[in-house]
Amino acid sequence: MSHKYSIIWLQGLTCNGNSHSFLNYTHMPSFAASFDMLYHPLWCGAEDFMSLLNSDVTFDFLILEGALSHDERLIQRFNLPFYEILDTLAARAKYIICAGSCASFGGVFRLRDPEKITGALFSGKEKGGYWLEKNNIINISGCPVHPRWLVETLVALHHGEKVLLDEFLRPKEVFSYLAHHGCLRNEYFEWKVDSKQLGEREGCLFYEHGCLGPMSHANCNKILWNDISSKTRAGSPCLGCTEFDFPRRALYETQKNMSLPQTPFGISKRAYYSLAGVAKSFKIERLEKKLIDEND
């Protein structure tokens, strides 16, 4: 068996959601067999943070959770300016893994001061976050990160595999999918049948309710959350939480241009609107009815 890889988990401006999401990992004993969590801020482990910081120990993964800032008035840990801690640890880590949208792009908390609060390499979609350049960073966005996205990336690196990344440095195996893929409302999307109101199993949430599934990169509806569900399966629109612009404004409304919604990712306006027009011109009776009709 190959040796264990070591992890130090560091938090910037965060809600702890990525830590708690990570703790939902189904096969934790298997994770623990391959990795040593040298330090995690929430749980009782063996190492003392200050001794780790003051040592010259190198380690495999620095996992960053939360938005970052060079401004010590905005963030400090252990009575030290945060940048001192981050710079010291980053120099000793083989890989830096940004767990969640805050560490990747700045996320929700960036909105307070986008000049000073950013992700590690990005501020929103712009390159140039906490660092201008760094070649050992992987972004695993999401608000929160899915435990499988995080652990499976770590395991692949542990196996010495090359992890293919997209333009935002996100693992392609996760982020080449769209949240739309595997959505149970797909047929309603194909035939342009809108969900009349929330709280029902029928209809697509893309047209009126702000769903960003067709333009959000993530395999949520392939691997599901908590091994069972997803936002769209619980009848709520995808909020686009894996994207650099999360959170957009008016998350429960579909942004329209001349009463037309935005087109799905990578589909031209001409292709989408032509097809949508045709699909909409048919009235598919089955899709207008309840999925389960007790009176049938």
């Binding site: 029902e200 936002k231 619980a234 709520s236």
Partner: peptide, 30 residues
Amino acid sequence: AVMQSLKMGAHFTGQWPHGSFVMAGGVTCD
């Protein structure tokens, strides 16, 4: 056990943490 408890809830809330399942007038899941 923690995971099972949250999975129980996610049947209704879609996910934990940060699930969306409430809306003015009720809940979105059925």
